[in-house]
């Protein structure tokens, strides 16, 4: 497939919007909307995207949007999709929410909507803090990162939302990155073909909050993946699978040094060697867990297969 076939020329995030220069979430949203097309309605809770949209009477989105309060996006999307279905109207109902609206204040509603398995795609664009209000720590802020409410570095650990969502046994969970647009677009398109609740979590670098030169957004997003900080994966009907290039990163030797990712960002400038070790350890643990999950998954599948074989005999 050629690039232009996969990425339609049509722009649904219109130029002249209010995103900061080099905005990672805006780049991700541009891909998401290209993958979704015009028969899409976005539900957007309070977040940078409420501002990126521009102000009344103009909207930077070429698709219908419902702006909603912080904690309410998943429940609003639940009612929206059920209402459309009740009237026989077909459309992609998609939540586009930041990390605060997802892992913190919106989590209860998100969990409820996922458990009810509405036909909704929920996309979290994660820039790892409350950027719209001025870079305050969220539950998605990584260990060690500076924010205005963690001036000496965050002591907490990034909440692992993709796996929390997978524990809801929804049909599709995926992670993505704007540095890997083909993977991202494939995942969004795939989600539209699956009925039920889909969750996609995009790590979207923020030059303003992460303190780096806006030209580095894609480079930093790429390094997040290549250092193993942000694994690209999908969990389809409970089955975990790594996606390229993360597939190769189970071997720690294949991962780029974490420092390469951190040193480009001002928010990690104060990081001590000790802090770096803590963060590196968290990443190693994450991969050890993924590795173990893949192994257990294979064993379970073997056992189920054997059991079925024995029953047939």
């Amino acid at each position: 497939m050629s690039l232009l076939e996969q990425f339609p020329r049509e722009e649904y995030l219109l130029k002249g919007n209010a995103a900061c220069a080099g905005c990672g979430p805006a780049l991700a949203l541009r891909y998401v909307l290209k993958a979704l097309g015009p028969r899409t309605v976005l539900v957007i809770p309070a977040s940078c995207s409420s501002i990126i949209a521009g102000a009344y009477p103009k909207s930077a989105f070429k698709v219908p949007v419902y702006h909603i309060a912080f904690a309410a996006s998943a429940a609003t999307a639940s009612g929206l999709v059920e209402g459309l279905e009740a009237q026989g109207i077909e459309a992609n109902v998609v939540v586009w929410a930041g990390d605060g609206g997802t892992v913190d204040i919106g989590l209860q509603g998100l969990s409820g909507a996922a458990e009810r398995n509405h036909n909704v795609t929920y996309i979290c664009y994660d820039n790892e803090a409350y950027m719209n209000t001025g870079i305050q720590r969220s539950g998605a802020t990584p260990y060690g990162a500076w924010t205005t409410t963690t001036p000496l570095g965050n002591k907490g650990r990034k909440k692992d939302l993709p796996f929390i969502m997978a524990a809801h046994n929804i049909p599709y969970v995926a992670t993505a990155s704007p540095a890997f647009p083909k993977d991202l677009v494939n995942k969004v398109a795939k989600a539209q073909k699956i009925r039920g609740f889909k969750y996609i979590h995009i790590l979207a670098p923020c030059p303003t909050g992460w303190r780096y030169d806006p030209r580095l957004t894609v480079k930093i997003a790429r390094l997040a993946v290549m250092t193993g900080f942000w694994p690209l994966l999908e969990i389809e009907h409970g089955r975990l699978r790594l996606n390229n290039p993360s597939t190769n990163l189970l071997d720690p030797a294949r991962r780029r040094p974490l420092k390469e990712y951190l040193e480009l960002q001002g928010r990690y400038r104060h990081l001590s060697e000790e802090d770096l070790k803590v963060l590196q350890r968290q990443i190693d643990e994450q991969w050890a867990r993924i590795k173990a999950m893949l192994r257990v998954q294979e064993e379970l599948e073997d056992q189920v297969e054997q059991g079925q074989g024995e029953r047939q005999r």
């Binding site: 539900v43 419902y66 909603i68 309060a69 904690a71 309410a72 998943a74 429940a75 609003t76 999307a77 639940s78 009612g79 929206l80 999709v81 059920e82 209402g83 459309l84 279905e85 009740a86 009237q87 109207i89 209860q108 509603g109 969990s111 409820g112 909507a113 458990e115 009810r116």
Partner: peptide, 23 residues
């Protein structure tokens, strides 16, 4: 469609979403 939500905040959010759909 009966949406058995996990809270009243979500109950009102869901009927708002439904009303936005035209239902």
């Amino acid at each position: 469609k009966l949406i058995r939500v996990e809270s009243e905040h979500s109950a009102m959010a869901a009927v708002i979403g439904a009303a936005f759909s035209g239902a």
